[in-house]
Design a protein around this nucleic acid. Structure first.
Length: 423
RNA sequence: AGAGAGGUGGCCGAGUGGUCGAAGGCGCACGCUUGGAAAGCGUGUAUACACCAAAAGUGUAUCGAGGGUUCGAAUCCCUUCCUCUCUGCCA
């Protein structure tokens, strides 16, 4: 979330910048200003009274010490009136702070200057594409048919065990899946990301820290009995490593990578476009996270983009990179690049990675800060990206690499799979 | 899951109702000392918010979290989370 002081001091720029998202912040910022000045008034009043009553308490203490009980009792009466007003003011203060927080939760991050204006996903700007799109002959099968043909993914079995969107990978399919995970982790750690294994369930504080709560709690699976949430991405536990942390400037940057299954309720998205592996309730993903100095975060984003490019290049899949327009930009992101690989059998672009700079939007919620060389404390910047999400990569590999004889595994994966052909 | 013991600053650790934001130590920073280092000595060493144009300064809150008792809570009571020990269960 944004800082109240920042919003109020830069009101015009904020409203202007948010209009890129088709988000009209005029009213909400107006309310925010009102609440904030109310908050200050109440707080001053309250602190004044508390200060007085603290002084009196000290006096009472001294009087009792010196044996002056009668006088102490007299002064005690004075404090009675403070008590009620203190209580009232305090509950007013709490409720107004809650209101301010509620408003802050509703304001998305300010898009970076370079983010294009847009009214829909058609306004995303292609900034890179890797070359020619492969053409398969008309007998080419989509991955759900290939999965059945070679018995590598069983969607029906997943339905039986859990429900739709929980596929069972079998045999060479399972092996390919595991190979991809290891392959991605190897590339990420070679690029300097520290591998961590994180919990797949997180508490409420963590959900709030990275912005899934309170607004998007319908998208996460919630275990009510223990009040825990199944993670929708490793970004949540991995970024929360740094919640309530003050780093030293020289500790930056922090780079980590983590594999995890991801759980998403995907409430309300059903239909043909979610067929097969295209949209699942449980899928595997390897994530990269960076905590950066504000002056370096945009360079870091470019590095992350280059890194993801190199991964897809190695797999030899056709892809393009989109710079997301204001409309499509995620709530807490300032700048996002989406990677889409081209599925020749589905004749469709499939998103496989989203690399974002959240600037200080997450770190303000997380209270993730660093101490600069002057000794001042400032918010760090957080970035995250998929490197990579598995299902659509899996789907595209088997679709694009299908031949009459079988599915040809990309050469770079063969040392991981131990086989070069699924047939 | 049951019984017991705990959770204090970057770390260790004192504090069981009254100048306690918190002794003491370690660590860290700066200074003195030294040819240089170590040792020694001295000084400093939390965060958030508010007041102030700003700095200085002042105020308020924070001793796992939330609530309560009290003029006053790190200290007493309740709830909750976490850690440790024993028992149970288990990969």
């Amino acid at each position: 979330m944004l800082k109240v002081s920042y919003i109020i001091e830069n009101k015009k720029q904020v409203i202007n910048a948010l209009s890129k998202r088709n988000f009209d912040a005029t009213k909400i910022i107006g309310e925010l200003e009102d609440y904030n000045s109310q908050r200050k008034k109440i707080q001053s009043k309250l602190e004044n009274i508390l200060s007085k009553s603290n002084k009196i308490s000290k006096e009472i203490g001294e009087l009792i010490k010196s044996g002056n009980k009668d006088q102490a009792d007299k002064i005690k009466e004075q404090t009675a009136k403070f008590k009620e007003t203190t209580k009232e003011l305090n509950s007013e203060l709490i409720s107004i702070k809650d209101k301010i927080l509620d408003l802050l939760y509703k304001i998305p991050n300010i898009p970076n200057e370079s983010v294009p204006v847009g009214k829909g996903e058609e306004d995303n700007v292609e900034v890179y594409n890797s070359g020619n799109l492969p053409k398969l002959d008309s007998s080419a099968l989509p991955h759900w048919d290939l999965a059945k043909k070679y018995d590598i993914i069983d969607f029906k079995l997943g339905n039986k065990i859990t429900g739709s969107g929980f596929p069972v990978y079998k045999g060479m399919g399972a092996k390919l899946q595991r190979s991809l995970i290891t392959f991605f982790l190897d590339l990420n750690t070679n690029a300097g990301y520290n591998e961590v294994q994180i919990p797949y369930l997180v508490n409420e504080d963590s959900g709030i820290g990275t912005g899934q709560l309170p607004d998007k709690d319908g998208q996460m699976y919630h275990i009510e009995k223990d009040n825990l949430y199944l993670i929708p991405t490793a970004e949540v536990p991995a970024t929360n490593i740094f919640r309530d942390v003050i780093l030293n400037e020289e500790d930056l940057p922090k780079s980590i990578t983590s594999f995890s299954p991801c759980f998403r309720r995907e409430a309300g998205s059903y239909g043909a476009h979610v067929r097969g592996l295209n949209r699942l309730h449980q899928f595997d993903k390897v994530e990269i996270i960076r905590v950066e100095h504000p002056e370096k975060s945009h360079h870091a984003l470019e590095e992350m983009v280059e890194h993801v490019k190199s991964i897809i290049d190695k797999l030899g899949l056709p892809y393009r990179i989109l710079k997301l327009c204001g409309f499509d930009l995620g709530f807490s992101s300032a700048l996002t690049y989406d990677f889409e690989v081209y599925s020749a059998a589905q004749k469709k672009w499939l998103e496989v990675s989203s690399v974002s700079n959240c600037e200080s939007y997450q770190s303000n919620r997380l209270k993730l800060r660093y101490r600069n060389s002057d000794g001042n404390i400032e918010l760090a910047h957080t970035l995250n990206g998929s490197a990579l999400a598995l299902p659509r990569i899996f789907a595209t590999i088997i679709e694009n690499c299908q031949t009459e004889k079988g599915i040809v595994i990309p050469e770079i994966l063969v040392p991981y799979t131990g086989f070069s052909m699924i047939n």
